[in-house]
Amino acid sequence: MSPVLEVRDLRTEFFTAAGTLRAVNDVSFSLNEGEIIGLVGESGSGKSVTGFSLLGLIDAPGKITGGSVRLKGDELVGMAQPDLRRRRGRDIAMIFQDPIATLNPLLTIGQQMEMALAAHERLSPRASEDRCAEALERVGIPSARARLKAYPHEFSGGMRQRVAISIALLHRPAVIVADEPTTALDVSIQAQIVTEMKMLAREFGVAMIWISHDLAVVSGIAQRIAVMYAGRIVETGPAAQVLRQPRHPYTRGLLDSMPHATAPGQALRQIPGSMPSMMALPPGCAFAPRCAFASPACTSVPELTEAAGRSWRCFHPLDQPAQEGITS
């Protein structure tokens, strides 16, 4: 089966007055139909910019400067904006972190859904309302038709995110980029949304890129994980394997710094230092200055090593399992 989305050496740069910032650096991955990949990293690692790049939504001074994004076989990089617009929402959609910010507070849910519907389909008002109500029902919103007349502030946080999800699903896209969709929600609601998204992905065969800094959430939904650091994907592999046996010291650091990787009463094991400024990346491996295993070799960029369905960029890959209690 050919992948529904294939990203090769994607590169997105921002040309600011202070210098050029390479937010996405030779990122490659692919997604099969219905597959969920977790894109994990600290804030500022380029996860979200990667997501926006896939939809061609990079505003000046940013620009996609290289690589390729193939969606259902069609090249999106370099595609004219009007053509790209016709793809957005229909073939590839996006969900954001905070639904209170993404939904317009001054318009009803119905108005916003119909706007998204009308972007790609011409329907009678009647048919359009039916479709919207149906879409709301699908994400588990009770008395959907009546709720179309409600405003975003009349929904709870979890319900608002469901509305956003239903808008993203309106045209049954092949791929959804979910940018931290549960971060702004209560933990109990998070689990609900994760379960629901998993179900919807299976039901409609939607492939998903789940962007998150939270390994625990990602481990609950993604089949594969890609770990990003300073604009590069440093490690990918099946979720369970990456969590059980990280090969890149950075992935290991992320796992170790999760609260339940530490016995109660002990200080959390943080990764020493902080992410370098994207303006002044160290030569070679960007993680080297914070890495316990760094050697002189790390001043050049490590090639991608691939083995048994996994890949990593490291001169000193780890081979012991991570601490107990992380995998679930």
Partner: peptide
């Protein structure tokens, strides 16, 4: 984010300006 979300849904710039 409202405008970003609208763009991600494929809504045209003119509609975004007029309605959002």
């Amino acid at each position: 984010d409202t405008v970003k979300f609208a763009r991600a849904a494929g809504i045209s710039e003119a509609t975004i300006l007029r309605r959002h």
